[in-house]
Amino acid sequence: MFSSAALLVPIVGTIFSLGIPIVAIIGGLMYASRRARLQQELLMKLAETGQPIPPEIFNSALFHGRRSGKSPLRGGLVVTAVGIGMMLYGWIVGETSVLAAGLIPLLIGLALLLAAVIEGRQSKAPVTPDTTATRS
């Protein structure tokens, strides 16, 4: 028969394998919340002291929370490459399950690439002033 220690290993393994991503997500959300709060406090202090708020603060990557060098296009390329790599591995080894599993990151990557292209086109669209607004 199985001992209690042998039954404990899969339970602990499952808890840790599912718990680590949950802890990472919670930690990331807490970090983002703290960062946003500190940025808001900085803006409030500048406003209270009467100092002008430089427009660079609003346009900076720090204010928007984006890291430099991390673009949706890059992410899409990486995830697409992972999917292609998985599919090639499945084809070489002859495992159709790995080949089929590679479709998931491949399609996610292609969707990210499509989203990056669409967002790029929208950001390059000319901005026309709204002439329908009434002045009072």
Rank of each mutant, 00 (worst) to 15 (best):
E95F: 06
P105V: 02
L106P: 07
M86I: 14
V78P: 04
Y89M: 15
L99G: 05
G102R: 01
G76L: 06
S68V: 14
T96N: 01
V117E: 03
V117H: 09
R74E: 07
A111V: 09
L88Y: 11
L112A: 14
I108N: 05
L103N: 09
L88V: 15
A81T: 14
P72K: 03
L99S: 10
G90H: 02
P105N: 10
A100L: 14
A111K: 04
T96L: 13
G102A: 04
V93S: 11
V98S: 00
I84M: 11
V93I: 11
T96E: 05
E95K: 03
M86A: 13
W91F: 12
R74N: 01
A100G: 01
L112N: 07
G65P: 00
G90T: 07
Y89K: 01
P105Y: 08
R66N: 07
I92Y: 15
M87A: 05
T80D: 05
G109D: 03
L107Q: 07
V117P: 02
A116C: 04
G94P: 07
I108E: 04
V82P: 02
R66V: 01
V82E: 06
T96S: 10
R66G: 00
G94K: 06
S68D: 11
S71Q: 06
Y89C: 11
A111W: 10
A101T: 04
T80P: 05
L88S: 13
A81Y: 10
A100N: 08
S71T: 15
